[in-house]
């Protein structure tokens, strides 16, 4: 297993470098360092001298990939790409271009807010509610409960997340006055702010989640071993919850484990509407303000987390299916 993990980690290196190169190419294809300077310095009194000064102080006065003015290895090291990307390898994200904040510290601070909202959403929503409801529908398959449940799921998944957010804020926050409409706090005080976005986040995911898991369960309950279990005289509940569920875990795990790394990223829309200071908000702000330092860091972090998620998924298969082996 260890050899397998090491091999997968080694495979990840060229992927991460490739992601970095691609990010830099795409970013600088769309934006020149002059564009960044102009955007960041504001609208008033942005002289060419001020732009040049900004570039020098933020290390953007160098060529992007090859510095022909330097000798030897410095042709590569004295470039924007090398200077900005190499420290990422040891997770030194540097300072933001927009306001010089330390990005690593900002990520460490903000990730808790993202986790606070996305963790309950994934645990309570994805795993408990969606799985439970999907099993219920599978249990009552081909009955009016299944049919109407499915219709409701389709309706729920057809509604925009924005509608859930605005509707939830309006009904639960404004009309019924049960929760703060938006906001965030630290520690235990965060509880009252998290209920509404988490409930809305769960409600928004029920439709698609239930449909997906129902399909998985239905596929499973038509297999031979289920028929054998029924023939053995087991109750439908036991067949479904004890036997079929175990075997349906591979697609479920694929779905859940891959989404775990993105817990840190949080939910972009929910965070913005509920004024939750998470990483989703951070990334959106950086894109809007053309802060390459943050965009680069978040893309890099995202690629690492995605690779980690895929490795975790592979490992988790061995836990639920003894037939799966690392080779």
């Amino acid at each position: 297993m260890l050899t397998y993990i090491i091999r997968r980690l080694l495979y990840a290196i060229p992927i991460i470098i490739g992601v970095n190169v691609l990010t830099a190419v795409l970013f600088f294809y769309v934006n020149t360092p002059e564009d960044m300077a102009r955007k960041i310095l504001g609208e008033k009194n942005v002289t060419p001298a001020a732009i040049e000064n900004w570039k020098q102080d933020h290390g953007y006065n160098l060529p992007t990939f090859v510095n022909t003015k330097e000798e030897g290895v410095q042709k590569i090291t004295q470039t924007i790409f090398f200077q900005k990307s190499v420290p990422l390898l040891w997770l030194d994200f540097g300072k933001s271009d927009r306001n010089n904040i330390d990005i690593s510290r900002e990520i460490r601070t903000r990730m808790w807010a993202s986790l606070a909202i996305s963790l309950p959403m994934i645990v309570a929503g994805l795993i408990i509610i969606n799985l439970f409801l999907a099993m219920m529908l599978a249990y009552y398959r081909a009955t009016y409960i299944d049919i109407w449940g499915l219709v409701l799921a389709v309706v729920l998944m057809s509604v925009s997340t924005l509608f859930y957010i605005i509707g939830g804020q309006f009904i639960l926050g404004k009309l019924l006055k049960l929760f703060p409409i938006s906001g965030y706090d630290t520690g235990l005080d965060s509880f009252k702010f998290l209920v509404l976005p988490v409930v809305i986040g769960i409600a928004a995911s029920i439709g698609s989640g239930v449909r997906f898991y129902r399909t998985v369960f239905l596929e499973e309950i038509n297999k031979d071993y289920v028929r054998t279990a029924r023939a053995k005289g087991l109750t439908e509940g036991k067949v479904l919850f004890k036997h079929a569920m175990k075997n349906a875990m591979i697609p479920v795990l694929t779905n859940v484990v891959v989404s775990i790394p993105f817990l840190f990223y949080g939910s972009l829309i929910l965070e913005t509407f509920f004024a939750i200071p998470g990483l989703g908000n951070f990334t959106i702000d950086a894109i809007q303000s053309q802060d390459f330092a943050i965009v680069r860091s978040m893309v890099y972090l995202g690629s690492i987390l995605y690779i980690a998620g895929l490795i975790l998924t592979d490992i988790s298969y061995t836990l639920v299916d003894p037939r799966v082996r690392f080779e």
């Binding site: 605005i166 804020q169 309006f170 926050g173 404004k174 703060p180 409409i181 938006s182 913005t272 509407f273 509920f274 004024a275 908000n281």
Partner: peptide, 9 residues
Amino acid sequence: KEAIPRWNK
């Protein structure tokens, strides 16, 4: 950032 929650609050 959002106008709707700001206005309602």
